[in-house]
């Protein structure tokens, strides 16, 4: 390992850390399966990350202030990992107004209020993903699954902790490709590709593959507002798999396709699992998580409840939410 500089080096002070969670997280590469947590009585509902409303401007703490509490493993020399997440916490402030306007801000300021909520979307999450892993992420709505995906792609900065990825991560969050409904599918594909840093030649070459695979026919050059939801998700999925990311993240993308498309998507995913460094599948379709993934994380309210094999996670999760493995929850993709 490379020599350390004393000033950069922030050793554990022994004050902040030391929770059971953290100890478990430290031993991350070895899968840890803490005893199935029972829902506590103080648990306010199952859904939603914790958030607090504040009427005053919250104190601006330096975003790095928490770093001192943790010791980070040095992964810089490693090549066996695709993703390493250490003590990741993401807290952000956003407004609860439907449309934030200057007018409302003034009205609220007059009353001494601010329309801000602080969302603790992710709370001290650590996990490693080795090359070749297909990681399933399950959890209730609002557990922080998509937030973690966005953080891995570099869209949301961590509030605490660190994220390391080896390779380019592509997000495929639900129906996320077409951002401008007035433009054609092809234009959206090209713009998305250029924005994510591909060259024009690469993008144009791939745009044809994307269109062909998605079987949109002439619709590829029609405005995206004319697309059906199935066409939308076919295009979204096709874009994600054709941009050849090193780390592929699929978030509920297949839900709108028809049977033939699902079959095709399944085959493509199997193919990608071997070529991509890692594959993340965020899904409520527990059956497909069980079937396709080699590793699984169960998130709840921004915390890792379990990091174990897909079967164990799905079992614990379904027990936790008391739904049981009915055909509805296990439904294929």
């Amino acid at each position: 390992m490379i020599s350390l500089s004393a000033s950069e080096q922030e050793q554990t002070t022994g004050v902040g850390g030391g929770t059971a969670d953290e100890a478990a997280a430290k031993a991350a590469p070895a899968k840890t399966a803490p005893a199935t947590p029972a829902p506590t009585s103080g648990d306010r509902g199952l859904v939603g990350g914790s958030f607090s409303m504040s009427s005053k401007r919250p104190k601006r703490e330096g975003p790095t202030s928490g770093d001192g509490e943790y010791t980070f493993r040095d992964n810089s020399g490693r090549t066996d990992l695709a993703v390493s997440v250490q003590h990741l916490s993401i807290t952000y402030r956003t407004t609860f107004e439907r449309v934030p306007t200057f007018k409302n801000a003034i009205v609220r300021a007059g009353r001494g209020e601010r329309a801000l909520i602080e969302v603790n979307a992710v709370n001290d999450v650590s996990f490693d993903v080795a090359n070749g892993t297909a990681l399933g992420i399950i959890g209730s709505n609002g557990a922080g699954k998509s937030t973690i995906m966005r953080a891995l792609a570099g869209i949301l900065p961590p509030t605490k902790g660190r994220i390391e990825t080896w390779g380019r991560a592509s997000t495929l969050l639900a129906l996320g490709v077409g951002f401008n409904a007035m433009l054609s599918g092809r234009e959206n594909v090209i713009l998305g590709g250029l924005a994510s840093g591909l060259s024009r030649a690469e993008v144009e070459e791939r745009a044809n593959d994307v269109a062909e695979w998605a079987e949109l026919g002439d619709y590829i050059d029609a405005p995206m507002r004319t697309y059906s939801s199935g066409m939308f998700s076919r295009l979204a999925f096709s874009v994600a798999v054709h941009m050849k990311p090193d780390i592929l993240m699929v978030d509920e993308a297949l839900s709108a396709g028809d049977a033939a498309f699902r079959e095709k998507a399944q085959a493509k995913m199997d193919e990608l699992r071997s070529s991509a460094r890692a594959l993340f599948l965020v899904s409520h379709a527990l059956g497909s998580v069980k079937e396709m993934c080699s590793d699984c994380i169960w998130l709840h309210k921004g915390k890792i409840m379990m990091h174990a094999s897909p079967a164990e996670c799905v079992d614990a999760y379904t027990r936790f939410v008391k739904v049981g493995q009915t055909p509805a929850t296990m439904e294929e993709l």
Binding site: I2, S5, E8, A27, N75
Partner: peptide
């Protein structure tokens, strides 16, 4: 804890 080796400068660069 054996994996908790200290962080080095190389990651910053």
């Amino acid at each position: 804890m054996s994996t908790a080796t200290p962080r080095s400068e190389s990651s910053a660069s």
